[in-house]
């Protein structure tokens, strides 16, 4: 019955070995899907390459359904997994800043690591920027300490907040994702008519 390590079915000593293995799988999938190119990643915002949308959204809906089925089969105890805590206002602000950073920098941390691995200099500079950004945050933290901790709702799930059961969200996300896949395929066709290069 999972999760294996918190239930001590596998000892904690394996933790870091497993971390590396999972990281390898993650990095491989990211790079193999084309996320090691900032121009591919930015494509989702300009309509010439929706690979980010396809991979990301597919992963979310597969994982949502997967978690629910694993719980049903008794393989995973959903009450024991880590749910990201919600801090409403700081998270909204953080997401907005990250969104700007994403379009400017063309990367997010995970993808920038894979890009560095294959020799992309712009990814190296992006990561340097990450260090600077986090450092500035750390140094100026006392200025917005209270805001940072505000809006805490705890480790709430969508169900906790809305009262709507999880399958509805899995289904809803799936429908929206599938619709988006078909629609963006059409958009891509139109945008690519005018551009020679769209896959980098």
């Amino acid at each position: 019955m999972g999760p294996l390590i918190p239930n001590e079915i596998i000892t904690g000593d394996w933790n870091f070995v497993i971390a590396i293995l999972i990281g390898i799988a993650f990095g491989f999938l990211l790079e193999a899907s084309g996320f090691s190119s900032s121009r591919n990643l930015a494509g989702v915002f300009y309509g010439y390459n929706f690979v980010v949308l396809r991979v990301f959204f597919t992963a979310v809906i597969v994982a949502m359904a997967g978690l629910l089925y694993f719980d049903y089969f008794g393989w995973l105890d959903l009450s024991k997994i880590f749910i990201l805590p919600t801090f409403l206002s700081p998270m909204i602000l953080g997401a907005v800043i990250m969104g700007i950073g994403f379009v400017m920098g063309g990367f997010c941390p995970g993808t920038s690591f894979t890009a560095i691995a294959i020799g992309k200099m712009d990814a190296v500079f992006f990561v340097i920027g990450l260090f600077i950004g986090i450092f500035i945050f750390g140094e100026s933290f006392p200025l917005f300490k209270d805001f940072f901790n505000s809006g805490s709702m705890g480790n709430v799930t969508l169900t906790d907040v809305t009262g709507i059961a999880a399958p509805w969200f899995a289904f809803g996300f799936t429908v929206v994702a599938l619709a988006a896949f078909w629609v963006t395929a059409e958009i891509e066709k139109k945008v690519r008519k005018n551009t020679k290069e769209y896959k980098f």
Binding site: L84, I97, M98, M104, G105, I132, I134
Partner: peptide, 17 residues
């Protein structure tokens, strides 16, 4: 822009947890 974008992203990621 890579550095600037990275700095913004890093800064924002702390708020966003």
């Amino acid at each position: 822009f890579a550095v600037l974008g990275g700095a913004l992203f890093g800064f924002g990621s702390q708020f966003g947890r």
